[in-house]
């Protein structure tokens, strides 16, 4: 008799077993929605699929009555721009600090305490300060994401730089490399795929800060819309927006994973075998 711990389902079974809980959640939702809608056809709490698709159609495919914009797409563009800028700047700062503190002991000694302290500050608690210093516009939203994400990336890259085999550095030096060459020719290329990994891991945090910032003061954005229509319990808009954010997050993650495999195939060789 095969032990349960050794029983690993074959691929079609794995797919099926993975889908069952999802289908179950969906079925439960639809049943609940149906029950509420039979009792009160105007119920807004658990909208049916048709209600959600008509809300999505209205938001995405028809110009808004008030501004003539396609709200769904302007929201998406605004949010992605903020997220992209925030994560992009955080990645550059994180890479610089991580690489330099990891590679140069003098810089490490000088910056490490600051980095540690900074990474411990809860960024959401800083929000009121950010608003006062940077105003309520785009800048403070981007800065929030940068502050929230950069310390994590920096510390992650610092750790990986420090973990580089000492032998490599010694070998490069015997071959006559100077500090600059070691930094940019030995360490940087090996750190780049790590940077992409760190960005992938910090995207979730980035979304969190983005939506928090948009909920507080904004004129557009995915988080803005969700918190605005919450005022009149428009779940038919909120649920598709949440699903869309999830899909966007998934696609961004996939794109980064693809980019990493494409640019640094050697990094993935070890993992694949």
């Amino acid at each position: 008799m095969k032990r349960l711990v050794n029983l690993s389902p074959s691929r079609p079974w794995a797919l099926l077993l993975g889908l069952i809980p999802l289908a179950l959640v969906l079925a439960l939702y639809l049943a609940g929605s149906d029950a509420r809608l039979t009792e009160n056809p105007n119920d807004k709490l658990l909208p049916s699929l048709e209600q959600m698709s008509s809300a999505l159609d209205r938001m995405a495919l028809q110009p808004s009555k008030r501004s003539g914009e396609y709200l769904f797409w302007t929201d998406t563009a605004a949010s992605l721009q903020r997220l992209g800028l925030g994560i992009g700047i955080a990645a550059i700062i994180g890479l610089l600090i991580g690489l330099l503190t990891g590679a140069l002991p003098a810089v490490n000694v000088a910056l490490s305490p600051l980095l540690t302290v900074f990474s411990l500050v809860p960024p959401l608690a800083l929000l009121p300060i950010l608003f006062i210093v940077f105003g309520l516009d785009e800048l403070s939203k981007v800065v929030l994401i940068v502050i929230g994400v950069a310390p994590f990336i920096a510390r992650d890259l610092q750790k990986h730089t420090l973990e580089m085999p000492r032998e490599q550095l010694v070998k490069a030096q015997t071959l006559g490399a100077n500090s600059m060459q070691i930094l940019f020719r030995v360490l940087l290329p090996q750190i780049m795929p790590r940077l992409i990994d760190a960005v992938r891991l910090s995207l979730g945090t980035g979304w969190l800060f983005l939506i928090a910032a948009e909920a507080i003061a904004a004129t557009d954005g995915l988080g803005y819309r969700i918190f605005l229509v919450r005022r009149y319990l428009s779940m038919d808009v909120i649920i598709p927006y949440v699903a869309w954010i999830t899909l966007l997050a998934f696609l961004l993650d996939m794109a980064l994973a693809w980019l990493s495999r494409r640019l640094y195939p050697w990094h993935h060789k070890g993992a694949a075998s």
Partner: peptide, 18 residues
Amino acid sequence: VVNTSDADMVAAYATPDV
């Protein structure tokens, strides 16, 4: 119109661009 949370209204007003 800029949607601003009531919890942050006073802090927002203290900034020069509001």
